[in-house]
Design a protein around this nucleic acid. Structure first.
Lengths: 191, 191, 191, 191
DNA sequence: CATGAATGAGACTTCATTCAT
DNA sequence: CATGAATGAAGTCTCATTCAT
């Protein structure tokens, strides 16, 4: 990390980057445009992020961490297994719908060659709790006997798809959050 | 008469582009590199595609059309409804696993700002038959009462996810083709 | 000169070049555009003119020769000295107004680095008669004692300027042909 | 504070462009060559001029403004009408002879398709005073009753021609400055 | 000879990054 | 640290010319 002076500026740059990536796509996102949108000089951006690639990686991390926080820190341990599953699902979908830009920026970042594999891994660390929880559900016979990663994949794929559907069709999030969960549950729950 | 434009060269360029996009990512894919890999001069690329963006759009179209052809032209009309659903699924997943490069290139193309909305739409035309079929299944009470687009979304999301899983985990496609379909069917079939 | 087959095609190319040079300017005039406008294939242009530069030089020559022909071959030897001077002037101005495109193309060609000095000289040969005539007028005391080239320069400058004025102001050529000649005569005639 | 944009560099670029345009012609003038001759990096040229075309237009403007300044700011209001006319003439011709490069560059710029009509117009604004003065001379009966624009056209055509003659024949400017003015005066003055 | 696909040098311009102020 | 002018490598695309058909 570069010499950091103002966390506020760092966040402004990340936020500006998010917006421009969504509007223009990552390859067409110029550091100059990010700087301008963040209200800092072109050179200042490089005080906070050594390179554009570092900015991309940091942005990825920050968004993933935010999502993890939303899903996990709000989880109530007193919930039943299915209720917790539903909790994770709802938080994911709602976050995506409410943070449209961050979600779309993620879509860009995930296919970027600039994204380092180690950062990708690091970004998954906060989700370990979800993975553990799913593993528990499988062990408990609540979910089908499948690899944890596959179940997580189904979970994420359905969530992403549902977010996209809600945003594109401009339907109410509540309805498809419910419907989507029903499909997901039917898919993965042991009968 | 002068030399005639060769479809062979056009395809060589598209194939070369696919490979390089997968290796380097779309933004880092240089027209010079594509031309060289296709075995033509740099200028020749622009004889076949006016701009790099047009090449990108044509590549998107060609891959989508190939997938549609694989799914649809092989479908047997004598199949039962569920069997046809399974047929579509298997063809999709197998095509993705066998055409790893094209699948990964698509992932890049789909988030590209160069991809024109009209081309995106055009690429969906050949899939109309699948959509009609799904609508029929819903009407027949075989599938849950959901919007056709949502079911198609679930179908595609699960298929893409399964392809990725097979490729990343290097497991046998047959197993997850089967497993994946079971999940999908449990998710969307009316009980 | 290249292998010539059809004089008709050669002239079509020169005519097409004239038009496009006027519309787009010489640097923006593409050989492909000339060929298309002339109704021949791109390669055919190079059968008639080895290079674009040769085409430019030939075009310059052909226009200058046409102007010379118009001025000189129509001159009546029975005319008085002043009348002949006026004849040359009128023919020049009228030709320019009636052959707007050729005149404007000349303006482009004359400042082109592609125009060879030897061709420039060669283009002046047909005008020798005018120069001789002017020399005679000076010797005869009709015109001021000035270098022939300077008088010719004044003649050409005034003619070009008058042509431009008529074309830009869209006034009648007859009026300024007359007015212009009066100015020219007052300028160069010995009082 | 960062480095400040230097007028010096801007002028160096314009001067370098002038020289290369004269040597090579406008179409063969490369931005890389201009930058090198100006002693700046290739990219720097585009800090001062967004495009090559803008550079061309700015150069045209700057030369025209310099000529206007030379002609007008040195004019003495106590001069008689004819003397002022002579003053304008002499300044024009001398400027052209002394600033050979700028004069030749202008010849290239004037026929360039890159030159915007609005810039052409803007370049004429500083010459309004000359036009007004000529109008006054006509009204006062000193000059023939002709449109102001036509008289200005004759003036410019004769001046340009005289400059060219002096430069090509390598004769003394003083002589033809005088001779030229006499011709011009005989041409436009009322007898 | 006529055609137009093929060529590749080279043009203009962009943009991440540096560094003088 | 903040600024934004300066940099120059590198990218896309053009176009005069060649040459297979």
């Amino acid at each position: 990390m570069a010499r950091v002076r103002s966390e506020e500026k760092r966040l402004a740059i990340l936020a500006a980057a998010t917006g421009i990536i969504v509007e223009a796509g990552l390859p067409a996102t110029r550091t100059a445009a990010i700087a301008k949108a963040a209200g800092v000089a072109e050179g200042t951006l490089f005080v906070y992020f050594k390179t554009k690639d570092e900015l991309v990686n940091q942005l990825y991390l920050s968004i993933k961490q935010e999502l993890a926080a939303v899903m996990i820190t709000t989880a109530d341990n007193s919930l039943s297994m299915e209720a917790k599953f539903r909790h994770y699902w709802c938080k994911y979908v709602c976050w995506g719908v409410e943070n449209h830009s961050k979600k779309l920026a993620m879509d860009q970042l995930m296919v970027s060659a600039a994204l380092l594999p180690e950062v990708k891994e690091q970004a998954n660390v906060p989700f370990a709790e979800v993975a553990n929880y799913v593993a528990g559900c499988i062990e408990a016979g609540l979910l089908k006997s499948l690899p944890v990663d596959y179940v997580l994949g189904v979970f994420a794929a359905m969530a992403e798809m549902t977010i996209n559907y809600v945003l594109q069709q401009k339907v109410a999030v509540e309805e498809y959050q419910q419907t989507g969960f029903d499909l997901l549950w039917d898919a993965v729950a042991k009968r």
